[in-house]
Amino acid sequence: MKNIITTLLFISVCNIAMGGGPWPQPKGKAYIKLSEWWTIFDQHYTDTGQIDPNLTTGIFNTSIYAEYGVTDRFTTVINAPIFSRSYMNNQRSGTTEEIIIQGEAINSIGDIDIGLKYGLTRPGANIPVSVTLTLGLPTGETSGGELGSLQTGDGEFNQYLKIDAGKSFQLGKASSYISIYGGINNRTQDFSEEFRTGGEVGIGLLNSKFWLTGKLDIVQSFNNGATAENANSTSIFANNSEFVAIGLEANLYVTRRVGISAGFANAVSGSIIAAAPSYSVGVFYDMSR
């Protein structure tokens, strides 16, 4: 369950469509987004990729995501789940309706990611390429609830290095872009390292006031972390989560710089990962326009 949540948090970060990509912010410009991301799931992908039921679990993150261009090639990035709520339903007897397992919830901040993006190519390059180092700080709750199975963070300090490349182009009269990324996530606390890759395509409609973005994210575990067999502590549950997720996000600029967004993502295959869609809504401020 912990890794499910950890991986879901990664999906939530991935779901920030209008930020990210290989394009650093121009010097002195910023992109800020306040968003609500959530998922409620009552089934999950097992370690063999099949779908099994679980007690209904919900995770809600209220996050601030921000990018700031320190120079035209250096951009600082932060993703801070300032309020994170995780809960599990009561399990009741279908015969007597008595509670068998008491539901519970925790509220805290989540794991905060801070990062630095560097543009390997000059601003305006035909195919911009950037590298980003993201540090995942274990600021969330790692074992809440009576059973210790509720969490808003994974308790490990990870270092995620990725490279992004992309290209913007015109599709008819519409501005469009495509980008891909790949990276390695080095994790501590006996969690397996991960290879992450994916990409997104976006098209700007209504004179680039309305952007539609499709996303693909893939996580493959190196399977070099702890398992239930060799973990010494009950605080380490599953490891080695993997998934292939697709997502769609819409962003509408309601003023020149302020906009609203809505999106969803869903793992179409996976291992030790929730088998349910996640949703997000947000409001953003884009100084680069």
């Binding site: 959530w38 409620i40 009552d42 007690l55 209904t56 919900g58 809600f60 709520r85 809960y87 599990m88 339903n89 009561n90 399990q91 009741r92 007897s93 279908g94 015969t95 309706e97 068998i100 539901g103 519970e104 919830a105």
Partner: peptide, 13 residues
Amino acid sequence: LSSCIGDDFIDDR
């Protein structure tokens, strides 16, 4: 509203 703890029922008869 959606983040409230609800009930799951199991067939335990």
